[in-house]
């Protein structure tokens, strides 16, 4: 009896609370339906289209489009660019976030603004900047030719463009996290006699690991998917300086839809994996924040 009463009271309280604080049902439902419609129109349908188009001419054509030498070379180049850009941005991101969150220095706000620059600048402009600097007519063009170095229309240019467009991700992810954590723990480590490396390794990095992983995944996704900046500096040389997104474009322009969609499906697949990893990390980091309740004294 008592349980039914308390359950009823609980139920009533819940109803009262929701009625008092939320919008009428028709508003809620129309909001949900509008966003679902929008999502399916702009996300689910195109995603499904990529995979259906890719497999339209059968599974064998699909595989053939992926193991063809130019495609393999594009996949390889994409992986190389990401593999170089990622560790560099990892170091830069942690260093920048550490400096901004834990120290006071002049020009700090300028540094924060500069980190955001790649978000603000169109990737095409970013690519053009590198052409301007390293291109044949550029500032270092002659010097590069004299020393037999190739940056533009070669792998170094692609890597540079990739680094440029991806470098805010890790720093942006870490700065608010590290600012919220403060520097008490690092100072505690210092007073206890730990060296700078020991503090970084045993105190700072474990505290930011989920944020860092999240930043790494976003960086990786962007590095592999970048089109604009890479397109300007790459020169589109098949089998040489083509990344996956560029390869997709070339195939599409040649009306080779099945192959274009096959390579595109790889990129889409990568995006799905990224999303899954991202959700997993968010779930993990939420779990590590919501720890068990305090033990009574």
């Amino acid at each position: 009896m008592s349980t039914t009463v308390s359950q009823l009271a609980h139920y009533n309280a819940k109803v009262a609370r929701s009625r008092a604080t939320s919008e009428p049902a028709w508003i809620r439902w129309s909001l949900i339906i509008v966003s679902l419609l929008f999502l399916s129109l702009f996300l689910f349908i195109p995603l499904a289209a990529v995979f259906t188009e890719a497999l339209r001419k059968g599974f064998e054509t699909y595989i053939a489009a992926l193991i063809e030498p130019d495609a393999l070379s594009a996949i390889k180049l994409t992986l190389i660019a990401a593999a170089i850009a990622l560790p560099l941005n990892l170091v830069f991101g942690v260093a920048a976030a550490w400096a901004i969150a834990k120290f006071e220095f002049k020009g700090k706000s300028i540094l924060i603004t500069l980190i955001d620059l790649p978000f603000a600048v169109s990737p095409v402009i970013a690519g053009l900047i590198y052409v301007l600097i390293f291109g044949l007519q550029g500032w270092f063009g002659e010097w590069l030719i004299d020393n037999d170095l190739k940056v533009i229309f070669a792998i170094p240019g692609i890597v540079l463009a990739t680094i440029f467009v991806t470098f805010p991700f890790i720093a942006r992810e870490l700065i608010p996290l590290m600012q919220a954590q403060g520097k008490d723990e690092e100072e505690a480590g210092l007073v206890l006699g730990a060296s700078g490396w020991q503090i970084l390794w045993h105190i700072t990095l474990p505290n930011i690991k989920w944020g860092l992983l999240y930043g790494v995944i976003l960086t990786n996704a962007r590095a592999m998917g970048e089109f604009g900046a890479v397109s300007v500096v790459s020169g589109h040389i098949r089998g040489m300086t083509n990344t996956m997104p560029l390869h997709v474009e070339i195939l599409y322009n040649e009306y080779n839809y099945a192959a274009a969609f096959a390579v595109a499906s790889l990129l889409a697949f990568l995006a799905l994996i990224t999303l899954a990893l991202k959700s997993y990390i968010e779930w993990q980091s939420a779990r590590s924040v919501v720890a068990a309740k305090p033990v009574d004294e």
Binding site: D184, E185, E187, A188, G189, L190, V191, G193, A194, S195, H202, I203, P206, N207, S288
Partner: peptide
């Protein structure tokens, strides 16, 4: 250097290593 001062420091918000 802080490390050589042989001091113990207790912080207001504990500053325990949370992990």
């Amino acid at each position: 250097d802080v490390r050589e001062r042989q001091v113990g420091f207790v912080f207001q918000h504990y500053a325990l290593f949370r992990h």
